[in-house]
């Protein structure tokens, strides 16, 4: 009695056996088991039928045309010609090759120059336009934690604008157009939570 694994192994190679594609040793093994196993006998009968069907199919196949090889040669020559013509641009025309090399060289140099000269700038609150100062000015230093939004609101409240700064020490010069508003502005700035220092600029 065959184990089920052995049976499946033999079944799996029956198509190869029917076609004579296994070694003599394997073939002998198959024959030994086939003799006792009805299932294997039926399967082999089936595969022999398939083999016979294929024999008929093979008879019906057309013969390849005799000129296929000539066409293959023509196509290979054509591919060679195309390949050569592409390479000839680089290798056979010295002016073109030199020009291409120079272009690539300059491109690389240009890119390197651009990358190393990039300046990473930080934007700070400052005057938006340059014009001659006509009003009065106040020196202001804002606290470090003062937000841009709050600073803008405060400057708007006193009807002023930044005319200079920030300096290295963080000093801003705020311009006030009307003289009578200057004292009020100074008062508001002095009392503000975000202002560290506010004083008349002379």
């Amino acid at each position: 009695m065959l184990s089920s694994k052995k049976l499946e192994d033999i079944r799996a190679i029956l198509p190869l056996y029917a076609k004579g594609l296994i070694s003599d040793e394997k073939a002998e093994e198959v024959e030994k088991f086939i003799f006792d196993e009805n299932l294997l006998q039926r399967e082999l009968k089936f595969w022999n039928g398939v083999k016979a069907g294929y024999d008929k199919i093979k008879k019906d196949f057309p013969e390849p045309n005799n000129n296929i090889y000539a066409k293959i040669c023509t196509q290979i020559q054509e591919r060679k010609r195309i390949k050569q013509s592409i390479w000839s641009l680089y290798s056979l025309n010295p002016k073109f090759s030199f020009g291409l090399i120079m272009f690539q060289f300059l491109l690389i140099i240009g890119l390197l120059f651009y990358i190393f000269n990039l300046k990473y700038e930080y934007r700070t609150l400052s005057t938006t336009e340059i014009r001659a100062e006509t009003g009065y000015t106040i020196n202001v230093i804002f606290k470090e934690n003062a937000r841009e939004k709050d600073i803008r609101e405060l400057i708007k409240k006193i009807d002023g604008r930044i005319v200079d700064g920030p300096s290295k020490t963080g000093l801003y010069v705020i311009g006030i157009k009307e003289k009578d508003k200057k004292e009020l502005a100074l008062d508001i700035l002095s009392k503000s939570d975000i202002v560290l220092f506010a004083e008349n600029a002379y």
Binding site: G49, V50, A52, G53, Y54, D55, K56, I57
Partner: peptide, 9 residues
Amino acid sequence: TEQLIYLAL
């Protein structure tokens, strides 16, 4: 048989 399998294939 040959013909049938041929057709089935």
